[in-house]
């Protein structure tokens, strides 16, 4: 067996596989490492285009600048509000819908499931949605971000499938012991569904954390999250710093931009590897079968 494995063809094949994998690693990491290097680099090497993957003339200046910049701090706080508040509301609403829908014996189960599935393939469109939300009076308030995205139908179906896979016997025993369905959901189903909640919780958190477009059309300036703040710096709607000359100004902007990118991306990037084993499972349960 060992002999057959080490044929010339297989060795070439292995080499190619590893080369491809190294290429993938480099391509995924380099843009990020570059931004880290830029954000920690001093002005001079940046102006002379000397920074590559390692910071030169290490300095924390750009981080100090953005953290003293009140707009950034405010936007960063807003992002936390949307990510935590939005995800919490979404998890409650999604489980309130998913649990009854996982009980196929309920009347109207098919009807309500169809009602959910339809929204995955057809939606009201940007303009009617905007007009309805604005006539509901939520445009210009934080509710415009916290409420409309409380249930994502894909996430709902992942959770329904997850609930369906839980063993029935425990629930039946709890019913006989006199526990109501709310009690069962809270004390039995939720603790058993950590993997399911980790999966969709991550999806919701990533959505709220990264969203900028809904913030752009529904929110006022003081409510903007950090991603919209970054977009406004990039397209020049908002000036971030006053440098002396114009060359210095753009260079400064680059290091500040990278500092904003790093501070706003690191929380979510440090979160996902811990949840990896959950969402891989969640995606394969809910993804195709949907």
């Amino acid at each position: 067996m060992q002999k057959r494995y080490h044929t010339a063809e297989n060795i070439i094949f292995d080499t190619i596989v590893y080369l491809v994998m190294f290429f993938v690693l480099v391509v995924c990491l380099v843009p990020f490492l570059y931004m880290i290097a830029v954000s920690f680099s001093g002005m001079k090497p940046l102006v002379n285009n000397e920074v590559f993957l390692w910071p030169k003339e290490f300095t924390l200046e750009s981080y100090k600048t953005i953290f003293t910049y009140p707009n950034f701090f405010h936007a960063y706080g807003n992002t936390f509000i949307y990510a935590f508040g939005g995800t919490a509301i979404a998890l409650v609403m999604t489980s309130l819908m998913a649990y009854p829908l996982s009980k196929t014996f309920l009347w109207g189960n098919k009807f309500f499931t169809k009602m959910v599935v339809l929204t995955m393939f057809f939606s009201g469109g940007m303009i009617p949605t905007y007009l309805i939300y604005s006539s509901l009076g939520i445009v210009g308030t934080r509710a415009a971000i916290l409420m409309p995205f409380a249930i994502n139908s894909f996430n709902l179906i992942i959770l329904i499938n997850f609930f369906k896979g839980l063993p029935n016997e425990i629930e039946e025993a709890a019913l006989i012991d006199g526990l109501g369905y709310f009690g069962i959901l809270r004390r039995i189903v939720l603790p058993l569904s950590t993997a399911g909640f980790a999966t969709i919780g991550l999806y919701y958190a990533v959505f709220f954390w990264n969203d900028w477009f809904n913030a752009l059309i529904y929110l006022k300036g003081s409510q903007y999250p950090v991603m919209l703040f970054l977009r406004n710096i990039v397209n020049g709607t908002m000036a971030i710093a006053d440098g002396a000359g114009s060359a210095e100004k753009t260079t400064m902007a680059i290091s500040l931009k990278s500092a904003v990118i790093i501070t706003s991306t690191v929380p979510i990037i440090t979160l996902y590897p811990f949840l990896q084993k959950f969402f891989v499972k969640g995606l394969t349960i809910g993804g195709v079968k949907g």
């Binding site: 969203d211 900028w212 991603m227 990039v234 991306t265 979510i268 996902y272």
Partner: peptide, 15 residues
Amino acid sequence: SYMPRFISTVVVITI
């Protein structure tokens, strides 16, 4: 390889 999926489009375009 999953990492880029978690990065906001704004960040991708800025980079």
